[in-house]
Simulated scan of single mutants.
Amino acid sequence: MLDGLQIAPLIEADRMVLRPPRRRDAGLIALYLSDARAAKSLALIPHPYPPGAAEQMIERALEGKRSGPLYVMDATPSDGPEMIGLVFLNKEPEDGVYQVSYVVGPAFRNTGYATEAVLAVRDHLFGAGAKALTAKVYQDNDASAHVLTRAGFDYLGEGEAYSAARGAVAPTWRYRLERDRWSARSS
């Protein structure tokens, strides 16, 4: 239960299930987040990715010490890889609003997995009563901007955010999707 919402530990999508991380995921998480392109797309991931950081991330998620769930994109239900990428949900200060971030491993870029994961998380959160979803994308990450617009997010404008991998503030695009807008599209 988060913010009064019953957020499921497992979310099903067409080709994958989104599940909590397991300790044995640490190696692939470290591998994926060690990729400079992945690190540059997430605000809090440093580059190079430090030893032991994946294990710490998993422990924080398993102990409920994050501001929202961490999901692993697991494609084993469709005979795919056990881990394709990650989806991070973080509670925003506004009640019922969550920020969505995601990353896929280098071998799984441009395969539709990120879009599929965002659509599944979006539908689950709104079905559970979330008010809105937000996202920020660094302006050199057109692929993530495309994922968000395909998922129905509205472009709000430009902004800036610190990037640990870049060691600097970088320009972003801001997105938001309101529950009412999602509901109108779904009916």
Rank of each mutant, 00 (worst) to 15 (best):
R66A: 11
A36Y: 07
P20H: 09
R23K: 14
R24F: 10
L44M: 15
A39E: 01
A39L: 06
L42I: 08
A30M: 03
I29R: 02
L28G: 08
P51M: 09
S41A: 14
A54T: 07
A43H: 09
Q56R: 13
L33N: 05
L33V: 01
Y32E: 06
D25F: 04
A38F: 02
A54V: 10
L31H: 11
D35F: 00
I45T: 03
H47F: 00
L28T: 15
K40N: 11
V17H: 14
A54S: 12
A61V: 06
A38Q: 06
A30F: 01
G64N: 13
G27K: 10
L62I: 10
G27C: 07
P51V: 04
A30K: 02
V17Y: 06
A39H: 01
L28S: 06
S67M: 13
S41Q: 07
E63S: 12
P50V: 04
P21M: 04
G68S: 08
L62D: 06
Y49L: 01
L44G: 12
E59R: 05
A26P: 08
A36F: 03
L44Q: 04
G68E: 02
R60I: 13
G64A: 09
P48V: 00
E63T: 12
R66H: 14
K40W: 03
R66Y: 14
L44C: 13
Y49R: 01
G27T: 11
A53W: 00
G27P: 10
R66G: 12
E63H: 14
L62H: 12
E55T: 02
P50Y: 06
V17K: 09
K40I: 09
A39D: 02
P50R: 04
E55I: 13
S41I: 02
A61G: 04
Q56N: 15
D25L: 07
R66K: 12
R24G: 15
M57A: 10
Y32P: 10
A39P: 05
R19F: 05
L62T: 02
D25H: 07
G64P: 10
K65A: 15
K65Q: 14
S67T: 13
E55L: 07
P51E: 13
Y49I: 00
D25S: 15
S41Y: 04
M57S: 09
A36M: 07
L62N: 07
L31R: 05
I58V: 08
G52W: 08
A61E: 02
H47P: 03
L18H: 03
A43Q: 14
A43I: 02
A61D: 03
R66N: 13
Q56V: 12
K65P: 10
H47Y: 02
L18W: 04
P46E: 06
G52Q: 06
I58H: 02
